[in-house]
Amino acid sequence: MPTNSLPRLIPRPEGAFAAAPRPVRIARIVQENYRIRSYLLAETMPHAYPGQFVMAWLPGIGEKPFSMAGNAPIKLTLAAVGKFSEAVHTLDEGETLWIRGPFGRGFSIEGERPLLVGGGYGAAPIAWLAETLWRRGKQPVVVLGGRTADDIFGTEPFDRMGIPVVVTTEDGSQGEAGRVTAPVERLLATEVADSLCAVGPHGMLKALEAAALAHRIPAQLSWEAFMGCAIGLCGMCEHEDGSLLCVEGPVLDVATRNEMR
C-alpha cells in the first residue's frame, strides 16, 4: 500500500538518455548561411526524437546544449554567437565533437495539420520535426522567420516533401515583410492548421504562446535556458513556470483554455 498518493508527474525520457560525453567524428559540415552551420556526425541516435537536445563538449572550451536537427546521422545546427559556438565553427570535417544525450522531452503533439514555426537556427530542428510528422501522414505547414533574406536557410527539404513554407523577413527582403506572427495568425484563423510547434528566440515563442491561447489550439514550444547538468539535478535551467527545462522541457505544452477547464 503506497503512502504517497502523488501521480507519476514526470515521465522520463525514453532510452539510455545520458552518459559521459563521448567523442564523435564530424562527417560533414554544411554552411547554412553567413553565421549558421550544420554538423552531421558519424553516429546515429535511433532513440532520439525531434525537440530533444544534446550537450556538446569541447575540451578546454566548455559544454553547451544544442537541439537535434536529425538523428540518423546526428545533426546539429549552430549559430556562431559566442565562445563555444565560435569554437565549434573552427572545426573541420574529420575532427571531433564530444556529445552526451539525448536529453529532455521533445515534441509529441497529435494534430493532423500542425503549424511548425522556426526562427533563426530553429529552422533546422523544425525541418526534422516536419519530416517526422510528414512520414506519419500528417500535413504540416511551415513558417520560417528571420531578420533579412540572409538569415533564412533550409527551405529545400520542405520543398522536396511538398510541405508549404511561408517565409517572413523583418525587412521584407524575402517572403512576407514582418514577423512570423502575421502568417501564423492567418493560418490559425483560417484553420489551415490545427496545432502549433515552434523553435526559436524567446520573444517569438512568447508571441506564439499568446496566439495559441487565443485560438485555443494545442501548442508545444521549445524554450531555452542556461543548462548545467542537463539531467535534472542542478536547478540551473528552471523556466519561469517552475519547470526544469532539461528534463521536463525544453519542449513545454501551452495549456489551451479547453484543457484548463
Binding site: 552518459a19 559521459a20 566548455g62 559544454e63 547538468c229 539535478l233 542542478c234
Partner: peptide, 13 residues
C-alpha cells in the same frame, strides 16, 4: 561546464 555527468556507475559533479 561540464559540471556534472553520468560516468556509468554513478555521477560526478
Amino acid at each position: 561546464n561540464p559540471i556534472c555527468f553520468d560516468w556509468g556507475e554513478g555521477l560526478i559533479n
